[in-house]
């Protein structure tokens, strides 16, 4: 495992991220732009599922229109996040906040899948009325998990290079 991580750190992507003057900054900039698109649009779907905003707009329409923008952001975040990981693979796997971030990401994906497979299947029955408990739970869980992802991402930056994490 360690050999693979060390090999990753010698690849051209890793060298650009870690050793060029502006490579790291550009990739982080792209990662943050991805975040603005992904979570910045997902927030409104989650708040609508919780019944907090845009309640006169059917949740089905809102998520159908916003989701492509969120997915675009997630693709950008995933690609730039992978590049950052490749650049600092050995340090990342030794950092507690990296694993907390990964755990929160997996839980966010599971939450989205459960919503998609169960709650969203019956959206025609509940859309238009106050959202059911399952929809509210999916919305608040998603918001909390993404807040944890963002916080852990920042904690990583402050601990990965000092060994504090």
């Amino acid at each position: 495992m360690l050999e693979i991580l060390q090999w990753l750190e010698t690849t051209p992507i890793a060298l650009v991220v870690r050793e060029s003057d502006w490579g790291f900054h550009y990739v982080v900039g792209v990662h943050i732009m991805g975040l603005a698109f992904a979570v910045g649009t997902l927030v409104w779907i989650d708040l609508r599922l919780m019944g907090v905003v845009m309640n006169s707009c059917p949740a089905a329409i809102l998520q159908r229109r916003l989701l492509p923008w969120s997915l675009f952001g997630f693709a950008v975040m995933l690609a730039s996040g992978l590049a950052l990981f490749i650049g600092f693979a050995t340090r990342a796997v030794g950092n507690t906040f990296f694993w907390l971030k990964m755990l929160a990401l997996v839980l966010a994906a599971v939450n989205a899948l459960v919503y998609h497979r169960i709650t969203e299947r019956r959206i025609a029955q509940w859309d238009g009325a106050p959202p059911p408990a399952m929809a509210r739970m999916a919305g608040i869980t998603s918001l909390l998990l993404w807040a944890i992802v963002i916080l852990c991402g920042r904690m990583m930056s402050y601990t990965m290079f000092t060994g504090a994490g």
Partner: peptide
């Protein structure tokens, strides 16, 4: 307090995400 700075930085980024996301949705 490095932990406090990291936490504040995380909250700053959450605020930015909501602001930029709100600008995207309303602007679009």
């Amino acid at each position: 307090d490095d932990t406090l700075i990291a936490l504040l930085s995380g909250l700053h980024l959450i605020g930015m995400t909501v602001t930029a996301g709100g600008a995207l949705v309303s602007g679009l």
